[in-house]
Write a protein that binds this DNA or RNA. Structure first.
Lengths: 226, 226
DNA sequence: CACACATCTTGATACTTTTTTGATGTGATC
DNA sequence: GATCACATCAAAAAAGTATCAAGATGTGTG
């Protein structure tokens, strides 16, 4: 859920914005003045800031400049001032958008979505490695000794769970609950079958498992850096 | 020197924009209509596009949608229509900003600078290749072994989605939501039919697919560098 | 308006993969 | 040597997939 900080001194405006944003799936923080706003951005680390230009303590532009000293998070300016010079000053100071009051909620929401789009960095490829095993979680590709291996949905879910907790022991119940669902916590036979299958596919020697080790009486564990 | 494409049917507006932009250090291209605009973006590869909503051939929104099929370059909309629905539609279709006429040159320039800041240095994949398959996303031309192949709108939408995420597994739901819409997420039969059709058209041997592989129980994946 | 044409939707059927289930084997511990 | 926890194998059941083709819908044209 994206988090927004609303910076405005008028409580009615904050209220209006909060309602509109919350009904559209945002988590909302509020600041009534500039100093508090800068503090809250640092503390709460919101995904977006909606910043009014008229504040009791600091100028909105000044708040923006201070924020831009250390963060590039999207800032959308709200203002009653519609003059070019104000807009240009704010935009050049690092604002991502500038809306003149009165504005419609729909437009603000659309412009927030644009700002979120812009903020998204390129998705980095997340790859887990351990010995001969290599798992590309974003592409759903598993390789062993550089050979791609085909896993069924359940086998993959199991392996992904092990990777998410690599190094730690996962109890039988934990695994069954996560992979099959809470009503399967006693189907320990499933574990035997699927761990055998998984070892068959990803271990160099399935009879002497080096990646997936059994912790007798407890559960299973995935070794990293084998 | 940043390069801008101006898309507007009125020659006076183009002139006005050209002068303002050139005196501020931009190199300017012009398009009087939508089809020419799409072509020029592919040919000239400008850094920015200024797009008027009222065009003689295609709707501005349609031009934007077509561009977003293959490129994320910044597009700033100009329009006489100031209604929320128009703005929201354009922004959600992928526009980076929306200016209502009349606007000031200074504001436009400032918003261009914002758009340039946001521009992500992406390697634009105008043409996708994999094995015998070749797809020109900007011209919507699909060839297999240098033979042009005709795809229906849905088949093309499907292929384009696969290309945008090539290498990754796309789940059934993802595909149905993107191509047919959120209310179709359970119509898995559509997938069977359309993937069969697509394979028939783009695979060398549709019975042994090498480009579009099935991940049973999960979804489908487009292989790159087959 | 009626026509041909392309495309989308739907149903039937054969086929493949995956999951579930049961039977049996192994080794350690008491 | 009986018991326990785990491993392995393989068949049955279930779920998912491929393909063909007919019906429905929509499109533009004369």
């Amino acid at each position: 859920m994206p988090e927004v900080l609303i910076v405005d001194d008028e409580i009615q405006i904050r209220r209006f914005l909060r309602i509109g944003l919350e009904t559209n799936g945002y988590k909302v923080y509020e600041s009534p003045n500039g100093h508090d706003a800068i503090l809250k951005v640092a503390q709460r680390k919101p995904d977006l800031v909606i910043l009014d230009m008229e504040l009791p303590d600091l100028d909105g532009l000044e708040v923006l400049r201070r924020l831009r000293e250390w963060t590039r998070l999207p800032v959308i300016i709200l203002s009653v001032r519609a003059s070019d010079v104000d807009k240009v000053a704010a935009l050049d100071a690092g604002a991502d958008d500038y809306l003149t009051k009165p504005f419609s909620m729909d437009e603000l929401l659309a412009r927030l979505r644009v700002a979120q789009r812009h903020a998204q960095p390129l998705a980095e490829t997340q790859i887990f490695k351990s010995g001969p095993l290599q798992v590309d979680l974003s592409r759903r590709i598993v390789t062993v000794n550089d050979q791609t291996v085909k896993l069924t949905p359940t086998e993959y879910a199991l392996l992904r769970l092990l990777i998410q907790h690599h190094g730690k022991v996962l109890t039988h119940k934990q695994i069954l609950r996560e992979v099959w669902g809470p009503e399967y916590v006693n189907e320990t036979h499933y574990l035997r079958v699927y761990f055998a299958q998984l070892r068959q596919k990803i271990e160099d020697d399935p009879a002497l498992p080096r990646l997936i080790v059994t912790e007798a009486g407890v559960g299973y564990r995935l070794i990293d850096e084998g």
